[in-house]
Design a protein around this nucleic acid. Structure first.
Lengths: 305, 305
DNA sequence: CGCATTTAATGGACTGAGTCAACTAATTCG
DNA sequence: CGAATTAGTTGACTCAGTCCATTAAATGCG
């Protein structure tokens, strides 16, 4: 459950942008086109040779309504439709030269409108606005293809991110109190303070510039490596990132000459446990505790390398 | 004249957001309200006692259309209208209890919808989206007054946020290495681990659901309070938040019976120094160091309480 | 293969959101 | 005071968008 004030702010923004777009779209009234007309013409103009169903699907329009609009466009000579030889029920819609002219004119007007808006801004401000638009779109547009995840070493801010994301996650999901975040901060802070690149490492999984997972290997002494703070964000579950991160740890620990890789976890973390089991870890001990408020079952797992 | 590709991107975003809002607004169809109805009800519900002209102006509606909608609302018992004693042509519109109930129900649905959208995002992503919305709005809405900042105690994730934001900021701005983030993690982690509410506190400045600043008071023993980790995010500078946070620390330290408030800072942080000077802190010592890579000038400041 | 089902496209019939013009009543301004 | 303006309302209308039924092609299944 997201913070309520975030949601309020988002609603507020939506109200604002509804108005803002409303104003922009009024401009279409200076042409004989409605907003829907313009959207359709734009869609046909960009993907040449689209079918009516596809159009209706993409723009969420009623097929009957769309059919009428296309008929009008055809009558006005803006588009041509031909039967699709591959499926004679379907038709292929293309813009005529005149249609392209109209389409481009609409584009020019729309551009001019935004340019007018941007012209009132200070140097650098349009860039800031557009960059913010990118951010929103990448986050809210499911069709904006999710960037592939990469795994890399930690850098500035990452350790803080680990503390924040896990602190928040365990609080929201399991009701753990701030003692848990304190523990994470201590573990992660010590890792950073005493970081020994020869024996230790931190992996961050990142997607489109946003951190989505992490794990540490720290030196426990006596040839024992410790896997700590494994975490994969909600948004990136099911991609096998957890397994990937654990595999990195195992590979690294072997390579650095450790004889054993151990970890501490809690039994309600079932996905994590499945990963450990599959990787060959064995459960060596278990104890109930209330370290972070609610009762939980702590477990120690070990993998012989 | 703005760069064309910026404009194209902005148009692209507008198309996307038109769709996005369209989807969200479909939900109003589950209620007997249209989007316009909902906007009107929202507007009346928020500013109690508004007049019809003001409403028509703010929402850019036809007065005739608005009049009819208000008539309907009146018939349904959602609002009451009384003549404005100051101008008998005008009327004062207020929501009835039932209207308020409806208004709040709409709000809850709208919230739930956005929450559902946000729930699919990663930790920090809703914040990123909302922060981008702020950016756009601040730039495009001439009437936008920035959301007021509030100051509150820390909760889950905040300590991690402190580590992350400062770790990243000092690395980007001054080239400090990870030893700095390690120090922050240690300080913040210890604060959380040994937190003594009777003598210590953490303040988080938040604006529209986004953390934008922080400061801690920790117990240094011997009647000395320590002000630590003062930070105000770039996006919220110039609002006096730094001063506000420091004032909180001073007030708290006095109230808890400390005799002295001390802090350590570096001299390139000029805004912070100005705040300390103004608050009455005096510089007691100074030493050059390379604790975090680049050479810097560490300073100890003290305020007698 | 043939029959039932699904899908693309369209026309008929309708609804209701939003617009425009005309009017009343109160207010302001010269 | 009278002319012009403003707040609000009603009547008459338009047209964007929806729902249902129909045709023709395609697909699925025994």
């Amino acid at each position: 459950m997201s913070n309520l004030s975030l949601i309020e702010t988002a609603r507020d923004f939506n109200r604002f942008y509804t108005n803002f777009l409303g104003l922009l779209n009024k401009a279409y009234l200076d042409t004989p086109f409605t907003l829907t007309d313009a959207r359709i013409l734009f869609e046909i103009g960009s993907h040449g040779g689209i079918s009516a169903v596809a159009l209706a699907r993409d723009l969420q329009l009623d097929p009957a309504y769309l059919s009428r609009i296309l008929k009008r466009f055809r009558a006005e000579g803006l588009i041509e439709t031909n039967r699709d030889p591959a499926d004679l029920r379907s038709q292929v819609i293309i813009v005529t030269d005149q249609g392209r002219e109209t389409f481009e004119e609409l584009g020019r007007r729309s551009n001019a409108q935004i340019a007018a808006r941007f012209d009132r801004l200070a140097t650098g401000e349009p860039e800031a606005a557009v960059s913010a638009m990118h951010t929103i779109r990448a986050l809210l547009d499911p069709a904006a293809k999710p960037a592939p995840a990469i795994i890399r070493a930690h850098r500035a801010g990452d350790i803080g991110w680990i503390v924040q994301s896990q602190g928040r996650f365990y609080a929201e999901e399991y009701g753990w109190d701030l003692r848990f975040e304190a523990l994470v901060a201590e573990v992660a802070g010590k890792f950073l303070a005493n970081f020994d690149p020869a024996k230790e490492y931190c992996w961050i999984a990142e997607r489109g510039g946003i951190n989505v997972g992490s794990v540490l290997v720290t030196n426990g002494g006596d040839g024992i490596a410790k896997l700590r703070l494994l975490y994969v964000d909600k948004s990136a579950r099911g991609l096998g990132l957890g397994k990937l991160l654990v595999d990195e740890c195992i590979h690294f620990s072997r390579q650095k000459g450790y004889r054993e890789l151990s970890l501490w976890t809690n039994d309600m973390l079932e996905t994590a446990r499945a990963i450990y089991v599959k990787a060959g870890f064995r459960l060596v001990s278990e104890e109930r505790h209330k370290m972070f408020g609610p009762e939980a079952n702590g477990q120690n797992w070990v993998l012989d390398l």
